[in-house]
Design a protein around this nucleic acid. Structure first.
Lengths: 151, 151
DNA sequence: TAAGATAGTTAGGCAACCTAACTACATCGC
DNA sequence: GCGATGTAGTTAGGTTGCCTAACTATCTTA
């Protein structure tokens, strides 16, 4: 043990131990969220990512979202089948790669979900006091960095 | 749109939109974590919960951890099979309910994992600057409240 | 132009979750 | 004292999201 003089480790460890269960629990809820409008939280995340980078490829998107290519391929297939996403035929001269873009329906669904504001997370946030929300706001950037968000 | 004077909603909504993808991404990583020592992050969470409330029942634990009873039943079965958890035969005179306790092996595994401090989350936290960690520390309580932590 | 890299898909499997339906025991009301 | 109702836990069956391995098709480079 011997705690003195540069032992950030114990600190970090304690923080991790406290953070882990909370994060696991929250994500459990998050995923469970019923989506009367279609569009699960994951779908919304993916559509947002695509709309931020029109023409992105499946592999690139997989890397951005930190999943395997096959996983992303399946998501894209699903989102395309639902009509929320479109594949542009090879925009460049590379015939392997097609560009993904959000469809009109996708954008509409995304807007609708954003306008709803009665989902689980928002309700929870709304029930907190402003100081707690501020604390979360300040934690946003560190969380994004942990998540390994790119651009 | 007309942002002034008491419109916490837009605020909360923006916070939720920023928080959601980060949380989803983090939990994805968290779950993916390989566990050379056995004991996934979920396992650790559950064992910790049990050790905090010796003698807890499956249903009560399910409620605490906010999962369905069958889900918890399966986890308990798994943890018991792994030898990390024990069921005490009905401690009260209620023959339906048995008390769950962590086994010696479970406690040992839990301690070992805690001592490891080279898991994904800790590594990420360690790579942040102290100010960022402090921001996260302050966000802990709000996060726990969102997660609906009880006692 | 053959060798290797890269985009994306298919196949197969696993972990964690859910609901519905069941068994076994408890308790309440008459 | 016994049926109705409730609660603890399990079983069965299905879904979602993720993975690796292996494949096809195309591009790039030596």
């Amino acid at each position: 043990m011997t705690t003195t003089l540069f032992r950030p480790a114990a600190d970090v460890s304690a923080l991790a131990d406290a953070l882990r269960p909370a994060l696991l629990r929250i994500s459990r809820q998050l995923r469970r969220e019923a989506q009367p409008l279609g569009l699960s939280p994951l779908d919304a995340t993916l559509l947002t990512a695509v709309s931020k980078r029109e023409g992105v490829g499946v592999s690139e998107l997989a890397e951005l979202e930190q999943t395997s290519r096959p996983t992303m391929s399946a998501h894209v297939k699903r989102l395309e089948a639902a009509g929320w996403l479109k594949r542009l035929p090879p925009p460049s001269d590379d015939k392997r790669r097609f560009g993904l873009v959000i469809s009109a329906a996708g954008r509409k669904a995304l807007d609708a979900v954003r306008r709803r504001r009665n989902d689980w997370l928002e309700a929870r946030l709304a029930s907190l006091d402003p100081a707690a929300r501020e604390a979360l706001r300040r934690a946003l950037d560190p969380l994004a960095r942990i998540a390994g968000e790119r651009a």
